[in-house]
Write a protein that binds this DNA or RNA. Sequence first.
DNA 1: TTATTATTCGTGGTATACCATATATGAACC
DNA 2: GGTTCATATATGGTATACCACGAATAATAA
Lengths: 239, 239
Amino acid sequence: MSTIAKLVERVAPSAPLTLGPLNATSLRDQAYALLKNAIAKTDIYDPRQELRVDERQLTSALGVSRTPVREALSLLEQEGFIRTVPRRGIYIIRKSKREMIEMIQMWAALESMAARLATLYASDAEIAKLRHLFDEFQNSPPSEHLGEYSDANIAFHTAVIALGRSQTIIDATRNLLMHVRAIRRATITQNDRAARSIVDHLKIIEALEKRDTELAERLTRQHTLDLAEHVDRFCDFLG
Amino acid sequence: MSTIAKLVERVAPSAPLTLGPLNATSLRDQAYALLKNAIAKTDIYDPRQELRVDERQLTSALGVSRTPVREALSLLEQEGFIRTVPRRGIYIIRKSKREMIEMIQMWAALESMAARLATLYASDAEIAKLRHLFDEFQNSPPSEHLGEYSDANIAFHTAVIALGRSQTIIDATRNLLMHVRAIRRATITQNDRAARSIVDHLKIIEALEKRDTELAERLTRQHTLDLAEHVDRFCDFLG
DNA sequence: TTATTATTCGTGGTATACCATATATGAACC
DNA sequence: GGTTCATATATGGTATACCACGAATAATAA
């Protein structure tokens, strides 16, 4: 049984007797969500990780036919998570270092635009909430809670994007996050980056509060471009 | 026969006797490309335009079964070009004004990042080519050749993005272009925007030539944000 | 043993039949 | 004539059988 298949839970485990709409969403969408979650949870950069996805094995594991599974896989392929090679198999894609850097640069472009929009359209209350994300790290240095800080770090960037109120940008960054998240986690422990990033974040929050459009945009962009630069230098474990 | 179906040509018209690989690409990909082209050529904002897509009609028009057509439609749905309503039908999506503005803003974010990258990585020769796009408009005002100028305008923006050498950004903007193109064409005739835009373009080219990263980025962003602003004011024909 | 050929098997791709249900149609009744 | 209910139809969703092709394996010859 493949490693991915193990992560997958059955769609309908032991069918409880709840009434109501039995299947609000299509099997295709369920399979899509399930697979995407499985991929997100997998550390695809672990060299020992099996990257093969067995289509027919999935269908039996999910208890559905090939059709909805194949449609879900088609979507994932278009999003760049997997690649299907005719008569060879379906494989989870391991992004190269260059691709990872490009994705971070694109993230920088979108988040900085979101920051710009946030200075124009977000409410004071919404911006104020950003500070709370780091309340617990005010007195104790983040280096002591790297796991929690990493989550807060990602939550911060996601929140800034949400403040921009552009559903288009929010949607576009959702998939990017899946790829970038692993790198953010890995690099947070390097070079005291946690402590530095919290300084940057506070400056960004201040710029947003002052409604300084250009500054908020520039700081946000530069903060993420720094990550791209860091990956370029220190993440040679990527292809 | 639906309007879309009329635009679709048969996949294999009268099968010429050329040897070689008969079907290099899968039927799914062929159907996908065909449908996307058909949608691109359709003026979906013409109120008389039929937006219904008949799945079974398509299969007979293309001479293939439902499976590859359905997979192609799935991809187009995920890209936001169509929407399938269970037991109702499949419809081409007409973007709302807000969505259009968001897409233009996202375009601004990505193209300005590409301009930034271009100042760092593009060659002088590549940047020089940008000027040629407007050679024919140097002496005669663009208002006399709006059709050609509109094409050159779009070519310019696409070229700037290509100079950034980020395949990720290039791919991401390709779909955006399909939506934004119609608006660029429509607005080029308004408010003497053609003449103004050519001035902006020349300034952007100069900034790229001078390798002024911040300036090139800012000018590019502002130029496209101006379009968003213009659409917000004058394009009420959008939902 | 090694090289070559034949065969099997696994894979993704495609065609097709069937299903569930919302809508449309029309018949029956008041 | 209008309302209600039963039936038919159309549509997207799903299951399944089959296909073509290449890789892996086995069989065979040198």
